[in-house]
Design a protein around this nucleic acid. Sequence first.
RNA 1: UGGGGAGUCGCCAAGCUGGUCCAAGGCACCGGAUUUUGAUUCCGGCAUUCGUAGGUUCGAAUCCUACCUCCCCAGCCA
Length: 562
Amino acid sequence: MSETTPGAAAPSSNFIRQIIEEDVRTGKWRGRIATRFPPEPNGYLHLGHAKSICLNFGLARDYGGECHLRFDDTNPVKEEQEYVDSIIDAVRWLGFDWGDHLHFASDYFERFYGFAEHLIRRGKAYVDSLGAEEIRAYRGTLTEVGRDSPYRARGADESLDLFRRMRAGEFPDGAHVLRARIDMASPNLNLRDPVLYRIRRATHHRTGDAWCIYPMYDYAHCVSDAIERITHSICTLEFEDHRPLYDWVLDELADVLPWHSRQVEFARLNLTYTVLSKRKLIELVGSGAVEGWDDPRLPTLAGVRRRGFTPEAIRMFAERIGVAKADSWIEMGVLEDCLREDLNERAPRRIAVLDPLRLTIDNYPEGAVESCEAPNHPQHPERGTRPLPFSRELWIEREDFAETPPRGFFRLAPDAEVRLRYAYVVRCTGVEKDAAGRITTVHCRYDPDTRSGTPGAASRKVKGNIHWLSTAHAQSSELRLYDRLFRVPEAGAADSREALNPDSKRILTAFTEPALSQALPEERFQFERHGYFIADRSDGAPGRPVFNRAVSLRDSWSGRRG
RNA sequence: UGGGGAGUCGCCAAGCUGGUCCAAGGCACCGGAUUUUGAUUCCGGCAUUCGUAGGUUCGAAUCCUACCUCCCCAGCCA
């Protein structure tokens, strides 16, 4: 069905699993378990959808059922094939497989229509000729009951005739609608004779101009579920008070469509420092606040993929946050931590110097170069090493040197000792500054007996351990450092360009070790002491990759300082 | 103010057919050990309390009552 998620805890109990387990126990569906992920192809998928995808496909996987990918394409004016393609791509990327269950609500249009005639014949639906404004006025309010439309008494024959002519294209958009005949006085607004069909002369991305009437969600969704014999139709909380309508439709159609899926609602995902609504995402992209739907700062699946997230990390995340009915906000740290956990294990280590400072080893022979062996993974020696050229002139990280070290600093400082990772222990002997007083070069002397991998190295313990790159061998690469999109945790509550984090993207030119020039698009690495980076799949060229920082490493030092 | 939902540690979330809960687990946080990433790993700590107030009971987060707070619903969107 789909891949399991390594590193993820066994799925914890939740109310939906309980429902399913109870159903399995009582044989309610005669052993069948079928769920579905039903996106409307009118936008890009984001992490909120990922929660739903993992839930639906995960349930099918765990209970030996099937999960359908079904496009809810009932509104041609908003939907496009481009979105269908991107959604299919995203669900696949996440690691799920729907087998031969790729469906489209539009494939059921003819059956939807037939069932609608059935409702009309049985007096359960009628053609209303009120305008949109009037229908709203007649609907009443939250506290006042609605009034019957003057057309509500229309007979089955007349409605049937009108409905057929609606289909035939005899009327302009908006002239008539098909409505369910339920109860205009219901305290649940969804039951006040909801619209089932509207006239919409628009070209549908799949059915073209075959239809000029299109079904509404409340009618199409439950019928699609029944057609596909879905057992558990899982959706978000805002559909909770649509459930009586969902059940009404299937009850009224029972003799011609004898299947009644159970709708179950769960709380949608909220993530701090970002926004998970199609509308807000469109705003961000449209206003140019970000650089497109796959901008690495966006919570779209295309965005997090480009950012460097793995499908495994996202599945782990979905598992960790659980499923319940309480509105909640998940801290961005939970997502980030899932990525760290996944990549810590898998990503090969590499060296990059982001903010270079020259280090000269005065007692190292000029022109000499030796090769140091750097392990690809500290916990997995079997993954081998790669050579790192060492010489007299090196780049180190500017923040790894302090002229007046703060308390607890154990990197390089005047007269202090530090290990150059995978190479030698050096002692700082002085600095050079420019006219402005900025340090331009740090001088030091190395101890030839402390080379990594030799007996001398083991006998010499130094607390500090910094990374470096030989100036003659380092390449320069473009790095993008991404940070949270908003500076406030519950962004989107207030809508706000000003809540945007101005430093959500920083581009810099860094020095990277030689091996990195071979990085393939989407290859991920840990840049030691910095974080996890991915070679961008769109930008960069062969031999000159561009790297995106997916997430930094945990850093208990910078936190302590400030 | 009508209807539908939800309230358990900073953030999630088990538990909710009452006792084995003086409440799992994860993230965060705080120690401490190991460490050639101040990373990882490891070990320890972290709710006498379950929105509030009453009640039932030998016994309640779990049952009852009232109240409080928050979310959703008046598209010919999904």
